[in-house]
Structures are given as C-alpha cells and as structure tokens.
Amino acid sequence: MKLCRDTLRIRILTISIVSINGSIKIPSDSEYETLIWIDMPKYLNKGKSITINGSIKIPSDSEYETLVWLDEDRYPGLRRTSDFPCFNPVAMSGFFDAPKAVIKIPKGLDRFALHLYVESGSPVIYFNTVENRPPLRLYAGAKWNIRVYERVIDVLFVDFESQIGRLWVILERV
C-alpha cells in the first residue's frame, strides 16, 4: 500500500461487520475505499483563499498541514507539496530480552497506550523506578494494555524472573 495515493484501499479482515464513523458498514472480508487517510501531508494554496471544513481558512500562497488527506479536486488551487511528516500511531515498538531491560518513554509523548505481550518468561515491570512497589507481574502469553492520558509513566524497568524471556512492547499514540 502506497502512502501517497488519492484513495486508500483497505482490506477488512474481521470476522464481523465493521462500522466506520458510526455509519459506514463494511462487511467482513471486503474492501472499502475512502478519501480520508490519517497522515499529515502539507498543502500549498496557489489559488484564492479557501475554507476547509467550514472553519479553517487557508489564505492564498500559504502552507497548510493537516491530519486529513484532502481531495485536491474539491479545493481548486490546493496542491500537496509534501506527504510527510506522516501520522504514525506507533511511537515505539520492539522486543526486550531477559534478564533486564529499561524502556524510556520518548520525550514529548504524553498520551499513549502501552501494549505489552509476553512471548516467553515472566517479566516483572516496575514503573518509573525499581523502588516503586508493587510491580506488574506478567507471565508467558500475557497481553496487557495500559492507557496513559498524562505523562505519569516516564520509564519502565523490566526484570525477568529467569534468564530466558522476551517481552514485546508497543507504544501507541492516543
């Protein structure tokens, strides 16, 4: 799938009907095309001053960054000048092996979901400092999600209870 397409084709692989924006129903295992793509391209308005979504005014010869993929046919004069920086829901992802790991939450990431999956072993996870008790005790096969709306977690210390173990971590922007 290319990022810089005018339409986005996604294949829904769910086992049931999916609803988008509360109204569009997509049957399972079917394709859906949409003009909206959540990246952050830059646009340059080479035409007259225009208004987007009824409220955002883009003066002539000015640049505009948005999370929404805009239809250039709908806004004459608007030209996409850059596809980047793209929106990316993943701030960090990877695995950490036994016996120990330190996972620093990237600076500037204040709202995030912490997704943990234990591939093997029994990791014990301390929040912000190893002195912070009790820790989170996980086990092989455990899937765990913690959602944080303010930066109350700054760093994670992972201490496996044995010499073998692997913890997968995904930090998602929310």
Binding site: F127, N128, T129, E131, N132, R133, P134, P135, L136, R137, I146, V152, I153
Partner: peptide, 12 residues
C-alpha cells in the same frame, strides 16, 4: 522523584 505513580495496586 517521590512519591512515584504506580498503576499497580497489588501484585504477587
């Protein structure tokens, strides 16, 4: 640094 935020109330 103290006191620390901890999402875990108890674990064992």
């Amino acid at each position: 640094d103290e006191p620390f935020y901890d999402p875990v109330i108890a674990s064992e």
